[in-house]
Design a protein around this nucleic acid. Structure first.
Lengths: 218, 218
DNA sequence: TCGTCAATTTACCATTTGGTAAAAAACAAA
DNA sequence: TTTGTTTTTTACCAAATGGTAAATTGACGA
């Protein structure tokens, strides 16, 4: 019997992430089902706390069928993390050196808050990974996030230097933007206890705009 | 044979948290060892990701010996969470209605940041629990945290009303303080990648004081 | 120093979990 | 419809995991 060929075109235990082969309709659909289910499960239980059975049930597929599409639990997690990284970097990448400094930063805050609202599961997946010491993401952080943050920190420092925003440590500014926006996704369970009235995001948007405006206005 | 009596004075599967019986030196020492080991393990892997074997190894005890001191994995986790809640509430409780509003809030920020630095594992234990939907802490949040936050939010609203600090939504202010301070503990793995130079906390303290001063100064 | 209770170890067990092999079913090109 | 391929199911397995029973060792007051 010849080796089973997995739908992503890799042989058994193959590794390249890039889809070397065009996927069938069924493959496309089921991979999406699995990744969506896995996002749900990993983001609420963390990697070790999630089980393939949970993912299978959530996806409406059998466990062996899931392992037909992915090489294992870890491969699913890694796939999610890889996809996530680009999405996560995007709002910061959009910070425009040519724009008005205050507007740019406030727009960045806005984008991050919108993402926390639109993609809370992704935010929690990321939070879980970092909380646990970034075991599978550390290389990514080093290779992709760090250079981007370095570049944008320099940009913000230049803006401050030129007196176009108030003096500020760019890195701590970025940390505080991440922390305050992602908080509404990551700590949703707590926020919901303390602000029961529906729709916390409009208030959050107003608060954060005010805070960073007061922080950065010269 | 008579029922084995556990060292906390409860019979098998007993429940009261209060130590009904004074503990021996050995009990005190070993319970501490276990709780410390469990804090380490739970805070990095989450509840489901942690194993009794890990905790046992970390504590330097055997697994059955651990189950001699605690009714099970869940009981250890609950014990940690209960202890944690009081520690966690304390800095906010200290917010003094008689003090100068700006000073009081800045001191609160300072206390929270100091806690993130001194007790990062506790911060991550808490973050893990909330991330996963607060399954074992929701009652606590409702019963202890919510009343406190309500009270302090009213206090801050009064300060703003009286023009002693700039107008602000008190609850979002509190959220942002939690988010920005705990970020340095919870996302330590990421922070360390982006700010390799040792000692991020002095810079964080300076940044946060500046931010909340600018935010709240009338 | 002896006896008793506390503490610990040894030897297990049932379930859960990630994963596999191989057969069966569904599908698609001819 | 036939044939080769893709997809799914069935039936497993080995390791890990939470937990227990009972025997063994240790501490310590009378």
């Amino acid at each position: 019997m010849k080796d089973t060929v997995k739908p992503d075109g890799r042989g058994p235990k193959g590794s390249p992430a890039a889809p070397a082969v065009k996927r069938s309709r069924i493959q496309t659909r089921n991979r999406k089902l699995i990744l969506d289910a896995a996002l749900e499960v990993f983001s609420t239980h963390g990697f070790r706390g999630a089980t393939l059975d949970q993912i299978a049930t959530e996806a409406g597929l059998s466990k062996p069928n899931i392992l037909y599409y992915f090489d294992g639990k870890e491969a699913i997690h890694v796939t999610l993390l890889n996809k996530l990284m680009e999405t996560w970097l995007d709002p910061l990448e959009q910070l425009n050196p040519q724009g008005d400094p205050l507007d740019e930063i406030l727009a960045y805050v806005r984008r991050k808050l919108d993402m926390a609202q639109a993609y809370p599961r992704e935010s929690r997946l990321f939070a879980n990974e970092i909380l646990q010491g970034a075991p599978r993401m550390a290389p990514h952080l080093e290779a992709r996030l760090k250079p981007l943050v370095d570049a944008k920190a320099t940009l913000i420092a230049d803006w401050a230097e030129a007196g176009r925003i108030a003096p500020v440590d760019p890195r701590h500014l970025i940390f505080s933007i991440w922390a305050t926006t992602q908080h509404y996704a990551d700590f949703e369970a707590q926020v919901n206890v303390l602000m029961p009235e529906g729709g916390v995001f409009p208030g959050a948007a107003g608060y954060l705009e005010t805070m960073y405006r007061r922080m950065l206005t010269v």
